Amino acid sequence: MSDTGRDPTAERLQHLVDAGYPDARPVEGAVEGAVYLVGQGRVARVWEHRHGSELLRMQRFYADSAGHLPFEAPRILAVQDIAGVPVTVEREPTGKPLAVKVRTDDPEVLPEAVDCLVRVLRGLADAHDVDEVKRLPVLDEERPLWEGHTAFGTALADLIDRRVGRCSAPLSARVTDFAGKRARLMERLRSLPATTPEAVVHGDVFPETVLVDDDLRPVALVDYGFLSTGGDPRFDAAVAAAIFPTSVEHAAEITRRLTERFADEFGYETDDLLLYRAAYAMATCDAFAPGGGDDHFAWCTSVLDDPAVCEVLAR
């Protein structure tokens, strides 16, 4: 692994060249690691927080999901160790990110883009073969989310309990009545009925991870691994509505409209979506900067102080 603060791109490129990929070049930064084109329709993904055994499990999950999702999942061709860093060699996905096809800072979201998200969420909600994905760790943890649990709500509550202690001071400074909100959220999550059919939860559905054709139809969903597991499909709907907008000016309105559409489309209660959105914010608040302090941390605190979220947590 590279030293903290050091750009490892040149070093990794050299390792890929030495490993037999002379045409390797960087493509983009992704949540779960850098991606490099390596030729012959393949990409190499460098995983910062995963072990080879976990990636082999993800390879099996991708293979299993091929028959259950109405769009492509990544296909891992090989799991390798390059200079002590786990790397997956994957088939280069088809389609273009929805983000390059639509504006995500306009309060009038293109209807075709919303329809696309609905198709993705429906495909995930209908994918009930979750054995492999439930065994995956989430975020930077080494233990599967479901370890020791039989219900999604309690598993999520324990995840939050493990993580928010690391940045409780900055959260308390930025979020009104953080301790009270945390306690009420944990209570609500632990009391959720375990009656919702388990489905594949991607955990990060937004315009960068949804690949589309020229008619904005979803052809692939990529970047599993950040918070991918099995569980309540309402979680993906809650998160997708909130992380779609890129404009601070219009974010609240866009999120409100998407939340209403997803609730109406799937018959979800809005309160449940707001509850899961708060859970996502607490669980991921320091996912990109230990102790918080980055833009994602600021976004998470804004979610936790959203009047609609506050109202749900106050009940």
Rank of each mutant, 00 (worst) to 15 (best):
G5N: 03
D7F: 03
P8Q: 10
A10W: 01
L13W: 03
A24Q: 07
R25C: 08
G29P: 03
A30N: 10
V31Y: 06
G33T: 10
G33F: 13
V35Y: 05
V38A: 12
G39C: 13
G39P: 07
Q40Y: 06
G41M: 14
A44N: 04
W47H: 15
L55D: 12
L56R: 13
R60Y: 00
A66D: 11
F71H: 09
E72Y: 01
I82T: 10
T88C: 15
T88F: 15
V89A: 04
R91V: 14
T94I: 09
K96H: 09
K96S: 14
P97C: 11
A99V: 07
K101E: 11
K101P: 00
T104D: 14
D106N: 11
L110S: 11
P111G: 11
V114W: 05
R119E: 14
G123Y: 08
L124C: 04
A125W: 03
D129Q: 13
D140H: 11
E141R: 11
E141F: 06
R143N: 02
P144S: 08
L145E: 06
T150S: 15
L156A: 06
D158E: 14
L159V: 04
I160T: 02
D161A: 14
R166T: 12
S168R: 14
P170G: 09
P170H: 06
T176Q: 12
T176K: 09
F178H: 05
K181A: 07
S191Y: 00
L192P: 08
L192N: 09
A199T: 05
A199I: 05
V201Q: 12
V205S: 10
V205N: 13
P207W: 11
P207F: 08
L216A: 06
R217Y: 08
R217P: 01
P218D: 09
L227R: 03
V239A: 03
F244M: 04
F244W: 03
E253R: 14
L258G: 06
T259D: 13
T259I: 02
A263T: 02
D264V: 02
F266D: 10
E269N: 01
D271N: 12
D272K: 01
L273I: 00
M282C: 05
M282A: 03
A283H: 02
D294I: 10
C300F: 02
S302P: 01
V303D: 04
R315A: 13
